[in-house]
Design a protein around this nucleic acid. Structure first.
Lengths: 191, 191
DNA sequence: TATTTCGGAATGAATATTCATTCCGTTTTT
DNA sequence: AAAAACGGAATGAATATTCATTCCGAAATA
């Protein structure tokens, strides 16, 4: 069976999990190879080197996440609805790609990211900034640096996600709604 | 003279900066030695190995931060005042120890932390949890996992701090107040 | 006081280890 | 039976750690 597509995919999946859990520098190629059930050399058939591997991964998931947020974006609904859409996007994306968002969050300023990766990430930020700026104009969003507000949103959400994965907490609908509300209250103006 | 206390201190300072900026795995002993203006071997006169060095650093600053939060804690004031005290503690601590809080935040779940470090960190969390739990009883704090709320607070604050250090933003009194208010709104109940 | 001896702190070259990357014999695919 | 894909041992570079030696200030000796 031409597993070649599968192997590439396996390598990417294993790498993603390790990078998310231990970070780029602490994960070794043999670790990834072993987990992907592939020879160490095989990784180099698919990726020129370790940095190309991370960058590939990073760009792939940032793009995927960006698309998730943009898809069916309710531009003509209320700001609160738009926020809900974005938040739901995070939830959906995290459900479909367990480690991806955490990986992105922990590596978005890393020294080994190349131009393309940085630009890709900028595009993602632009979407969120765009939303916040629009809201600020309407005086519905606090007058604070977008990056800080974005950090609050991702920080809270990802921490929650960690707890859920660790089994310390159950991912009830109610809980997610609570976190969404909390993030929204952090971001919006209060009359 | 090159008192041993000074050397040890220099090593710790250099290590802190590198660990905060690049992470544990990406910083090498020679980097630290060079920055501390000390022979590589000297580091091993003070610390058994690289892991002992991080753990020492981690424990030291977590303890220091914990003390900052606890000192003059206004137990009998309003919850809002208590929050203000904690937030101010973060600000003060960050002003006094530029890299420390960021280092703590990015390394608190690292694989190389020993028992003592983990326990030390737990103590810090306990203080924050304590505050949140008390508030929850009074129904002044949201019914959400403390860890998630804590993540929101630190996430927002540290992101802000990064922007300030990067010179992208000025650390006005007003800005800090805004972030404090945002974090508080994320955490409290809204009648 | 001047000189010598001594202890241990500091050093950085040498060594041991870890890891990314390469290479080549084997297996699988066509 | 080629050709392509693999696996995993081999390689070399980068890094943590060690250790023989130097250095320096403080006693001991004169």
């Amino acid at each position: 069976m031409s597993t070649s597509v599968n192997k590439r995919e396996n390598i990417l999946q294993s790498a993603l999990a390790f990078f998310a859990e231990r970070g780029f520098d602490a994960t070794t190629i043999p670790m990834i190879a072993n987990d992907a059930k592939v020879g160490a050399g095989t990784i180099y058939r698919y990726f020129e080197n370790k940095e190309v591997l991370v960058n590939t991964l990073f760009q792939h998931y940032v793009e995927l996440f960006t698309n998730t947020l943009v898809e069916e974006y309710p531009s003509d609904h209320s700001l609160r609805d738009q926020f809900h859409h974005l938040f739901q996007g995070m939830v959906r994306f995290t459900n479909e790609h367990e480690h991806a968002l955490y990986f992105i969050k922990t590596h978005n300023a890393a020294y080994f990211l190349d131009e393309t990766s940085r630009k890709q990430f900028e595009k993602l930020l632009a979407i969120l900034r765009n939303f916040l700026d629009q809201g600020r104009e309407e005086e519905k969003i606090r007058d604070l640096p977008s990056t800080a507000l974005i950090a609050i949103i991702f920080g809270g959400f990802l921490e929650l996600h960690k707890l859920i994965r660790a089994g310390e907490i159950e991912a009830s609908e109610e809980l997610l709604e609570g976190v969404e509300e909390s993030c929204w209250d952090a971001v919006r103006t209060h009359k």
